[in-house]
Design a protein around this nucleic acid. Sequence first.
DNA 1: ATTACTAGTAGACGAGTAA
DNA 2: TTTACTCGTCTACTAGTAA
Lengths: 218, 218
Amino acid sequence: MDSKFAFALRKIALLGGLEDYVALSSRELGDTLEMSQQSASKRILELLDENLITRDLGARRQRIKVTSKGRDELKQEYSEYRKIFELADQVTLHGTVTEGMGEGGYYICQPRYIEQIEALMGFVPYEGTLNVLVDKEDLPKLDVVKGSTGHRINGFVQDGRSFGNVIAHTAKIRNVECAIVMPERSHYSNVIEIICQYHLRRTLTLDNGERIDVKIKI
Amino acid sequence: MDSKFAFALRKIALLGGLEDYVALSSRELGDTLEMSQQSASKRILELLDENLITRDLGARRQRIKVTSKGRDELKQEYSEYRKIFELADQVTLHGTVTEGMGEGGYYICQPRYIEQIEALMGFVPYEGTLNVLVDKEDLPKLDVVKGSTGHRINGFVQDGRSFGNVIAHTAKIRNVECAIVMPERSHYSNVIEIICQYHLRRTLTLDNGERIDVKIKI
DNA sequence: ATTACTAGTAGACGAGTAA
DNA sequence: TTTACTCGTCTACTAGTAA
């Protein structure tokens, strides 16, 4: 994203444009961006053109909202700053062991996934995944993880069913090597799925509701 | 800071320019910034001119490092992103009650400070401050607090001694209204000082080493 | 009050090139 | 190879102004 777009978009977000439409005249935006009303007006048109904001052009005052594309772009930048300042070759997520939906476990057990995991991560995952409900205050850290590279496990189509790309990040739970896996194109979730060479529940005697720390390498 | 400076500075920081000099040719920088070698070279000269980076112009490859001013500017932007995504009209710091150095308590008891605190915060602080050692993992949150506005309490000179500006943020400890105070120009510290209408140690029976949460309004 | 057009100007950029 | 100058072009800005 062009830095001038990011700059304007950030200021709009700071004014609450992520949550809802926010009343913001071109003059006001110009003042916060330290530019003329005319240039701010143009900037708004450009942001609209780039699909970074939507606008409700009322009779008196326009109201502006950041689109999901705009939000994603801002998150990308946020993630860069976190990498810069959080030093973060490691992120620790705190959470609670929960019962899996079974979905992730089924997916990841596909042989086509497993052979790639063995090649990339160096272990054959135990059947099924450990699901961890991430603490609310640690959810922003998940974005840092998503913003980092990790290992891409390629998707495939089998029996007419399509299995998408999966990103894996090596991690540790109580010093046991494991990996957190998530769909490359994931919608928001506060549950992470963890694969491991061993049966984590048994090896670490984890029950539902148990508190654990997941240290993720990023 | 001009957004184009921030953009270049951020990329340099991502390449490790915050920690140490990093070898970075103008062509390489141009590639990451998606601009020509010539423009990148010019950008570097501008950043030098703005005192945002320093340079070690070796015979073969120049080496670039972000200055402390540059670091501060980046932190400012980082803080904006945290405000955007951490929702954060409130930040909770976890920490441990510690014995004060006595310094802060002495400072804040000056009548010239106290009268301003009463006007701004609506209470007369109890003599002395409660010192809290902030958990290591919560230290980045302190930057968010510092990046937000708060109430400025103006400094003064008295008996030839100068008392600097102080920033206060309203806060709560176990539902008791208080405020965290810090020098406007503070060097790094992992101890925060808290003022309150009441004697916090007695009111909440806090002993040294006790774990507490400080909820700060930002 | 708004938003946003047009016109003129300042500044950012890349190509060519020197050191 | 580097860095960084000059110069021409083209974009981005502001002022003036219309709707």
